[in-house]
Amino acid sequence: MRISLVAPLLASLLLTAACSEGQSKKGGKKSKKSDQTEAQAGSRKQVKGAADAIDGLEQVGTIKGAVPESSGLAEADQPGTYYTFGDGGTTPTLYKISGTGEALGSLAIGGENKDWESLSRDPQGNYYLGDCGNNNSARRDLRILRFRPETPQQVAEINFKYPDQTAFPPEKKKERNFDCEATRWHEGRVWLFTKDRGLGSTCKVYSVPDQPGNYTATAVTQLAIPGEVTDAAIRADGRRLVLLARSEMFILDGNSWAEILKATPRQIPLPGVGQTEGCVFKDAKTLLISTEQGGLFEYTFK
């Protein structure tokens, strides 16, 4: 009789211990999703810390998840709103966001996203979308897509070629300076700023008319930029040009466009914030910057 009472008691104790051990393991083991969430949170803290350490820079939001690899920024059709878009090969869509990254809507554009890289607009409300990313300097179908937000499926093309390119691609890597990720409308023309993938020290400047057609771009000048240019922004008064690069930017000032293109660039490092890809002036003193990783920042000029 004594044995029959002890046996169930021992069994009960063993079962309780086993359950407790299983619960402890379950509670102590992190899921893969939990690990990813913690890693993302850590990454955001790291980026915020990097931004806090840069005088004038502040992270104001995030567009991660809403926009696949933001590749450019431009003012949208309503004050305080902006358009951005995904990198080459993603859907031909513009995403409308607030100044803090809140998703406000989208526009389906009537043109393939071969390699969209930049966006700007003129005072009449026409937009110019640079489909001129050219990683290996091999493309022969470079173009600017011109459209209006109220009729985004009606797209006109400004097709162009470079006057100094004869090989597709050039044989030597140092001569492959025909990748353009930065375009901006200014004074009746679309200006093109190349990303020097060969030497990483020379930004070529070209321009094309802002009217649809087929053109040979006009070679204007070369800028000594020790970085790979990813976007451009022109202040409303036309007296400041910002050339964004990867985790840095270059400032060129002047009393006229001609002076700006002769100015000595002033470099501002942006370490640790991610791959900076888009920029646009919010006002005369504030630049909005997006990164491919989904960060949204403001830089305040002194």
Rank of each mutant, 00 (worst) to 15 (best):
E181G: 01
N134W: 04
V205P: 04
D141V: 09
Y127R: 04
T151Y: 00
T202Y: 08
P152E: 12
T202A: 14
G133Q: 00
I144L: 11
S207N: 10
C180E: 04
T151C: 04
Q211D: 10
T194W: 01
E171D: 14
E150Q: 13
Q211G: 11
D164P: 12
K161V: 10
K173S: 14
G130H: 04
G133K: 00
S207R: 13
E171M: 06
D210C: 12
T151F: 05
F178Y: 12
Q153Y: 04
V190E: 05
L199G: 09
S207T: 12
G188I: 13
V205M: 09
Y127L: 07
D179L: 12
W185Y: 09
E181P: 00
Q154L: 12
E187L: 11
A167P: 08
T194C: 05
G133D: 00
V155H: 08
G198A: 07
L192E: 06
G133F: 00
D196Q: 02
A167D: 15
V190Q: 04
L142E: 03
R140D: 14
D179Y: 08
Y128N: 04
Q165N: 12
E150I: 06
D141P: 06
S137I: 03
L192S: 03
C203I: 04
L192W: 06
R184K: 06
P152Q: 14
K173A: 12
T194K: 07
L142P: 09
D141W: 06
K204L: 14
E157I: 11
V155T: 07
N159D: 15
F147L: 02
D196E: 09
E171I: 07
P170W: 02
E181K: 00
